[in-house]
Design a protein around this nucleic acid. Structure first.
Length: 505
RNA sequence: GAUUCCGUAGCUCAGGUGGUAGAGCAAUACACUUUUAAUGUAUGGGUCCCGGGUUCGAGUCCCGGCGGGAUCACCA
C-alpha cells in the first residue's frame, strides 16, 4: 500500500463522516436520469424546451461556493453543465446540514452526484440547472487533476504526460473531452465499416485466436500453452487462412474484425495487439477490390466527418474517388528516376546502396525492391494511393500476376506515408501454394524468424477447390489514426501496451 | 535493440557556477445570495524516480538502474 497523500486521507475522513451521518457514500439503488447536459444546452434556448422536473447524474467537476448559494459543474456522459445550488432550496426546513455540511464540506471534485431541478439562464447568460434535490451517488477518494478552460478556450494545467494518460486512461477520459471524442469516432468508424460490409451482403464471422499453426502474415508470434491438450498454441498474427477456408466452404463473402498479435517492436505505429479487418470475396480479383476499398473509405470519411477532405497532421488528405494507382515499379521510378523493372539481384543491390538504402547479404530480389520502396517512396505518399504488383517473393499467399512474370496481383494503399491496407487476388492453386510454403520453410531454415509455417490443413482445403477470390486486410488502428488525426497508435487504443507498472513495495 | 531527451507537491511547471525546496491551480479554515480559470485572507502538503559515489554539504556533479517520450532499426 502506497502512502496516502494529504488529500486522499482527507477524502477518506469525509467518507467516514458521511457514514456517521447516516449517508451512504455508495448507495445501492438506481438513480433515474431523464436529462443530459448536451441536450439541455442545445435545446433550451433554441427550442425553448421547458426543462422542469429534470433528473441528472454525473461527476462534480468544479465548485464555486459563495455563502448560501453556490455554482458547480456537473459532467455527465455528454458533457458539462453548470448547476446552481441554493441552501434554502435544497434544505427547505430548519435543518441546513445537507447544504452546510454535506455539500460544502463533504463533497469533492470527482464525486458522483444525482440532482433534480429545473433549467434557467443566469444573469451572465449561462444555461444552468437550478437544483432542488441533491444526492451523493459515489464518493471519489482520489483527487482528479483539474483542467481548466477560460472563455477564450485557453487550457490551464492540461494533463499531457503520456505515461499518466495511457496508464490511467480512465482519468484521461474524465478530464480530456477531446480524448472521449477520438474514441467515439473510432467506434463509429468501425460501425460504419460493418454497416457497409453488411449492406453488401458479406457475413461477419469469428475465427480462432489460439492457433496451432500461425499464418497469413510474415511476423513473429506470441506463444502459449494449452495444458489439457499438452500443445503449444500461437496467438494469431492474421486470420487470413481461416477466412479462406470459409470461402472454400461456400460463403461468397466473409469478414472479421480481428485482434491480431505480433511479437515485435513497439512504436507510435505498432502495438503488440492490434485490430485488422480482413475481407474475402469469391469470384473477384484485386482490381475489383481496389474499387471496393475506395468506395468504402470514401463512404466512411463522408459519413464520419461530412466531407472527404480530412486534416491529418500538416496535410489535408482527400479520400474522394478515384485514388491514384501506381505499380510498385512506377512508384520507384517516379521517386528515384530509376527503372528497376528488368534488374537482377546484383544490380538492385547496387541501386539500393546508391540510394542509401540499408541492405544486407540475406536480402533477395523481392526484399531489396521492398526496401527501396519503403525508404524512397512510402514516406512521400500522403494522399491515398494504390501501389500495385509486388514481387512474388514477398507475397507467398498472392496469385501470380496474369501477365507480368515475377509479380503477384497485390496492392497496398499508402496514406499519410504509411500502409493502411493490403490486398490480393488470392492464390488458389494448391500446388503453387505448397511450393510457396516450401520456399518459406527454406527461409526459415536460413534463420528468418518471420517466415511462414507450412499449413497442411489449409493446403488440404485448397485442394478441395477455392474459387477465385479477392482478399483484403485493413489496419483499423492506422485508419483510425487518420480518421481522428492522431499521430500515435497509442492515442486510438484505450489501453496501449506498456511495460507493467512497478509494484510499490 | 541503438541514439537522444525527460523524471521536483494531487496537476502544470520554476529551481545559473553545489549551500535550509518554490509558484499557480487543487486541498484545509474563514468571509461572501448569480458566479464562471470566481475572489480575498490564512494554513497544511515533498523519499526532488531508485541505488551508489565525489564533497563539510547533492534536486543540482559522476556511475549504475527503473520508467517514459522522440528518432532510427524491424514490422501492419
Amino acid at each position: 500500500m502506497q502512502q496516502l497523500s494529504e488529500q486522499e486521507i482527507q477524502r477518506r475522513l469525509k467518507r467516514e463522516q458521511l457514514l456517521l451521518m447516516g449517508i451512504n457514500p455508495y448507495p445501492a439503488e438506481l438513480f433515474e436520469v431523464n436529462a443530459y447536459a448536451k441536450d439541455i444546452k442545445e435545446n433550451y434556448e433554441r427550442f425553448k424546451t421547458d426543462y422542469k422536473n429534470i433528473s441528472m447524474a454525473g461527476r462534480l467537476m468544479s465548485m464555486r461556493i459563495m455563502g448560501n448559494a453556490s455554482f458547480a459543474e456537473l459532467q455527465d456522459s455528454t458533457g458539462r453543465i453548470q448547476i446552481y445550488i441554493r441552501r434554502d432550496d435544497i434544505c427547505p426546513s430548519e435543518d441546513k446540514t445537507l447544504y452546510n455540511t454535506v455539500f460544502k464540506k463533504l463533497l469533492d471534485i470527482g464525486d458522483y452526484i444525482g440532482i433534480r431541478g429545473y433549467v434557467f439562464t443566469t444573469q451572465t447568460g449561462e444555461i444552468t440547472v437550478h437544483v432542488t434535490e441533491l444526492k451523493l451517488l459515489s464518493k471519489s477518494l482520489k483527487p482528479l487533476p483539474i483542467v481548466k478552460r477560460d472563455e477564450a478556450g485557453n487550457v490551464y494545467d492540461a494533463v499531457t504526460d503520456p505515461e499518466f494518460r495511457y496508464r490511467q486512461r480512465y482519468v484521461d477520459l474524465v478530464i480530456n473531452p477531446q480524448v472521449r471524442e477520438v474514441f467515439r469516432k473510432r467506434s463509429q468508424m468501425i460501425t460504419l465499416m460493418r454497416q457497409f460490409l453488411n449492406d453488401k451482403g458479406y457475413l461477419e464471422v469469428e475465427t480462432p485466436i489460439l492457433q496451432p499453426i500461425y499464418g497469413g502474415a510474415t511476423a513473429r508470434p506470441f506463444t502459449t500453452y494449452h495444458n489439457a491438450l499438452e500443445t503449444t498454441f500461437y496467438l494469431r498474427i492474421a486470420n487470413e487462412l481461416y477466412l479462406k477456408r470459409l470461402i472454400v466452404g461456400g460463403y461468397d463473402g466473409v469478414y472479421e474484425f480481428a485482434k491480431d498479435f505480433r511479437n515485435e517492436g513497439m512504436s507510435r505505429f505498432h502495438n503488440p495487439e492490434f485490430t485488422m479487418m480482413e475481407l474475402y470475396v469469391a469470384y473477384k480479383d484485386y482490381y475489383w477490390m481496389m474499387d471496393l476499398v475506395e468506395e468504402m473509405i470514401e463512404t466512411i470519411a463522408l459519413q464520419l466527418h461530412g466531407t472527404t477532405e480530412l486534416p491529418v497532421g500538416n496535410h489535408l488528405i482527400s479520400f474522394k474517388r478515384p485514388w491514384k494507382r501506381l505499380t510498385m515499379y512506377e512508384a520507384i521510378e517516379h521517386f528515384t528516376g530509376i527503372n528497376i523493372a528488368e534488374m537482377e539481384e546484383a544490380e538492385l543491390r547496387r541501386v539500393a546502396r546508391q540510394l542509401y538504402v540499408h541492405v544486407d547479404a540475406s536480402m533477395g530480389k523481392g526484399k531489396l525492391i521492398d526496401e527501396i520502396f519503403s525508404n524512397c517512396c512510402e514516406p512521400y505518399l500522403i494522399q491515398p494511393t494504390f501501389i500495385m504488383d509486388y514481387p512474388v517473393e514477398m507475397s507467398p499467399l498472392a496469385k501470380r500476376h496474369r501477365s507480368k512474370p515475377g509479380l503477384v496481383e497485390r496492392f497496398e494503399v499508402i496514406c499519410n506515408g504509411k500502409e493502411i491496407c493490403n490486398a490480393f487476388s488470392e492464390l488458389n492453386d494448391p500446388i503453387d501454394q505448397r511450393q510457396r510454403f516450401e520456399e518459406q520453410l527454406q527461409l526459415s531454415q536460413r534463420g528468418d524468424q518471420e517466415a511462414m509455417m507450412l499449413d497442411e490443413d489449409f493446403l488440404r482445403a485448397l485442394e478441395y477447390g477455392m474459387p477465385p477470390t479477392a482478399g483484403l486486410g485493413i489496419g483499423i488502428d492506422r485508419l483510425a489514426m487518420i480518421m481522428t488525426n492522431q499521430a500515435s497508435i497509442q492515442d486510438v487504443l484505450f489501453f496501449p501496451q506498456m511495460r507493467p507498472e512497478k509494484k510499490p513495495e
